[in-house]
Structures are given as structure tokens and as C-alpha cells.
């Protein structure tokens, strides 16, 4: 049995234009120790997907489908049971270390909170666990102390505290939502290394969300490319990155500079994807990407594409996927 199965996940949020489906029919499954990446532009539903897994969406949202954690559909659980899963079985690291920590609480107290909530250890054991965690994330208590406040730490150090909080109860799944986006480039690598090492050593499944293809390539074994709340391409990172089939995935790749590429040498402009992400209430009937896609056929505008198999573990939601010749 898979550790986590997400089946036909749909999320509807209340917006200024009434209820809008922001996540449509997401499917994936993970085993213990898997590392999955979710990639896409801002607003494509990556973070909403993560919050749905944590059941942390706004109260007036609706979630349909199934999120099965070890055989139990967590969407059917009452709020007490969900609280016993959050922070305990699934940990989450957020994007903004500056605002994600409580400014008036000492970091020790913030890290120990989920241990108190879920593990029911004694005071002494909790303290030991906290200092063990602080060692793990590279903020040894001997040097940093537990009575510091978040504003006394740098962005990278705060993100380390976030990580300590997220892994405090040895969760089976760690969700990292853009964990390095708000950090300096020099610190990004360290934080990514830390997350990867922790996942490797503890056997946690890792869901890493990023708009940065490099982060995904370094970290994830599998990747799901999202566009306007839908998965457009999914498969092993190797397959998807080497044999990208969806025009949107290809567009994402063309939009990043490569060292030594013609862009650098000739000072040409970087490619960008024409047009804009359609607003929620203005989405086309067929493929959401059709209006921006140079390969769109008539059917693309009329009917939503179904998943097509490209390789064993590689599927694409497109009527007219790219082939090797197209990319030359």
C-alpha cells in the first residue's frame, strides 16, 4: 500500500468572482522515502495542493477527491484527528521564514510545541529532543541557545528553525513549499542540502514545491508540472526533464538561461511563454494552455485533454505533445 495517495483532488475557493475551482483532478501517489517535486509558475496551485494535503485551506473552501494516508482518507477525518496528523505524520516548511515564525516566542518554545502536542514526552526528554533537532539542522544549542527570538536570527537560520519544527515528530511526509525562494542564493544550497540529507537519513517522503527547475532537478526523483491547477506533465524527473513533452514544460525550460548557451554568448533575449496565465473565471473550455500554445489544434480549444502515456512512468496531458524532432 502506498504511503500517500492523492486521487482526483479538486479544490474550490471563494474568490471575488464567486467559487472557482483552483485545483482540478490531481492524482499522484508516493511511497516512503520518495521525493516528489511540484513545479509551475506562481498561482498554478502548487501551494494550494500542499495546503490541501495539510487540510489547512480556508474554512470556506471545498475539497473533493481523496487524500489517503496509509489507508485513511484524511479528508473524511474530523478536525481533532487532523490535528493529530498535522505536524506529527506530515510536517511542512513554509516559504517565508521571516513571517512564518511567531515573533514573540523563543525558538526553543516554538520547536518544542509539536513535540509537546504529539509525542507526550517529559520535560527533560522534550528538551533533549529539541537540542538533538537543533544539532541536526545546524543550530547547535551550545552556540545558539533556545531562548533566542526569531528576529535575532538570519533568514537562513530561521528556515533551519522551521525545518527543525517540521521534522520534530519524525513525520512520514515532509512538505517543503518553496523552502529556498526567500533566501539568499548562497544560503539556498545549504538549506536544500539539509532538507535532502534529512529526508535521506530518516526515510521521510519529501514533497518539494518550487518554481525553480534547478531545485527540483537536484532534489526530486519524480516531478509533476502544474499549470492553472492541473497537472500537465508528470513522471520521473529524468524522463520529464530529458524528454519533455508538454509545450508548457518546454516553455518553462526555455525561459531559464543555460551557462554557455546561445543566450549568454549572443546576449539574445531569454525565451518567454507568450500571453498570460488565464484568470480563474476566464479559463477556456478545452486545454487551459491552448491560448498560449503555438502547437494548439482545434480540438485543444474544445475539449480538455486526457492523460497520455509517453513512457512507463511519464504521462502528459496534451493532444499534440512535443516529439524529439520538435525540440531540435
Amino acid at each position: 500500500m502506498a504511503l500517500l495517495q492523492v486521487q482526483d483532488l479538486c479544490v474550490t475557493l471563494n474568490t471575488a468572482h464567486g467559487p472557482q475551482e483552483v485545483i482540478s483532478h490531481i492524482n499522484f501517489s508516493m511511497e516512503a522515502g520518495d521525493k516528489m517535486g511540484i513545479v509551475g509558475e506562481s498561482g498554478c496551485g502548487k501551494s494550494i495542493t500542499a495546503l490541501a494535503l495539510m487540510s489547512l485551506l480556508p474554512r470556506d473552501s471545498q475539497t473533493r477527491g481523496k487524500i489517503i494516508l496509509e489507508g485513511r482518507d484524511i479528508l473524511k477525518l474530523n478536525s481533532n484527528k487532523i490535528c493529530s496528523i498535522r505536524g506529527n505524520r506530515i510536517g511542512m516548511i513554509f516559504q517565508e521564514p521571516m513571517t512564518a515564525l511567531n515573533p514573540v516566542k523563543q525558538i526553543g518554545a516554538q520547536v518544542s510545541e509539536s513535540i509537546y502536542l504529539h509525542l507526550k514526552l517529559t520535560r527533560k526528554q522534550t528538551l533533549e529532543r529539541v537540542s538533538e533537532l537543533m544539532d541536526k539542522v545546524g543550530l547547535p544549542v551550545s552556540k545558539f541557545g533556545l531562548n533566542l527570538y526569531p528576529h535575532q536570527l538570519s533568514g537562513g537560520q530561521r528556515q533551519r528553525v522551521m525545518i527543525a519544527m517540521a521534522i520534530a515528530c519524525n513525520p512520514e511526509i515532509l512538505i517543503a513549499d518553496e523552502p529556498t525562494t526567500a533566501l539568499d542564493v548562497t544560503v539556498q544550497e545549504q538549506i536544500l542540502d539539509l532538507i535532502r540529507d534529512l529526508a535521506d537519513s530518516s526515510g521521510m517522503a519529501l514533497i518539494i514545491i518550487s518554481h525553480d527547475l534547478g531545485v527540483i532537478a537536484q532534489t526530486a526523483e519524480n516531478v509533476m508540472v502544474m499549470y492553472t491547477g492541473q497537472s500537465v506533465e508528470m513522471g520521473s524527473t529524468m524522463d520529464v526533464f530529458q524528454n519533455m513533452s508538454h509545450p508548457y514544460t518546454y516553455g518553462l525550460f526555455s525561459a531559464i538561461p543555460h551557462v554557455g548557451s546561445s543566450v549568454q554568448l549572443d546576449r539574445k533575449r531569454l525565451n518567454s511563454i507568450p500571453g498570460q496565465v488565464p484568470e480563474l473565471h476566464l479559463r477556456p473550455r478545452g486545454c487551459n494552455f491552448a491560448d498560449r500554445c503555438s502547437r494548439a489544434l482545434k480540438i485543444c480549444k474544445d475539449k480538455e485533454p486526457m492523460a497520455t502515456r509517453v513512457a512507463d512512468h511519464h504521462q502528459v496531458w496534451c493532444y499534440h505533445p512535443l516529439t524529439c524532432e520538435d525540440k531540435k
Binding site: C83, I85, R86, N88, M92, F94, A100, L101, N102, P103
Partner: peptide, 12 residues
Amino acid sequence: DFIRTARAKGIT
């Protein structure tokens, strides 16, 4: 944000 973080830790 930090309220969401606290909720993510499993607090009610």
C-alpha cells in the same frame, strides 16, 4: 503566516 505555521504543527 505564523498562525498557519502553528496550525501546521497540529495545534487547534
